[in-house]
Write a protein that binds this DNA or RNA. Sequence first.
DNA 1: TTATCATATTAGAATAATTCTTGTCAAGTA
DNA 2: TACTTGACAAGAATTATTCTAATATGATAA
Lengths: 132, 132
Amino acid sequence: MRKYGNGKFKLTPQRIAILDYLDGNRSHPSAEDIYKSVLKRFPTMSFATVYNTLDALRKSGDILELTIDPEKKRFDPDTKLHHHLICIKCKSIVDIHRKFSLNITSKEVGGFEIVGNHIEFYGICPKCRKQS
Amino acid sequence: MRKYGNGKFKLTPQRIAILDYLDGNRSHPSAEDIYKSVLKRFPTMSFATVYNTLDALRKSGDILELTIDPEKKRFDPDTKLHHHLICIKCKSIVDIHRKFSLNITSKEVGGFEIVGNHIEFYGICPKCRKQS
DNA sequence: TTATCATATTAGAATAATTCTTGTCAAGTA
DNA sequence: TACTTGACAAGAATTATTCTAATATGATAA
């Protein structure tokens, strides 16, 4: 498993279970998804622990918090720069690992100091296309 | 004022007040922003009316619901294709009215039918740059 | 190994945004 | 005028998330 937490990140069984679930996970799970999954191994697991752990991981830069879904936050253990393709019907999300050149002029940014970008592609996934 | 609602959208005084507030508004207001503003003219205004009106306008395609802000939804009366530049400190949002060519191959989209895209540029706004 | 200490865990309460419910009201229409 | 439809308002309900306070535990140093 990949290394998480920079330095003072205490590895508890609960956290290991959360990390196990996140590691390599491409489903962009919500806090509830994570909670439900980890609950199987830790019946006493609390939502607070999930949120605390996710917050610690976010602060150490080990996961990203996605604001793509209006209903809830989703989390992504892939912190390499990438973009997302979102199904507007079932809200599934897939990664687009590619760079796009977005040349934006200093005039356009109006004094902002640009630090990053993120592209959301909207579409209808194969499964949902079949159903309609 | 611009025309809102496609057909059967009953123009009531409350709705007109909401539309007045939205019309040409570039601040990407939240439901609360709208509520607070309209409350001045309509002290009996209910949150439900704000949400109902916003929902009707969204369904008729007259406004966009932005999921940029993890705390709350924001609304944008500008439905022309455009992108956003977001200050990571104060969360202010400004529009980028320009097309970017995002050529994405059918292989990359894995069977998705693409219907649109949206670019979020992240940065630090002039005001926040001064403060730090 | 054991004692200590900072930090993690837990349950549940609190909060905040949003949605739902229900009764009332008003505009338009037969 | 009576009817119908949809809008309004108030507040309850819901959902995601954060906070609180008491307890437990992992990491470290003796």
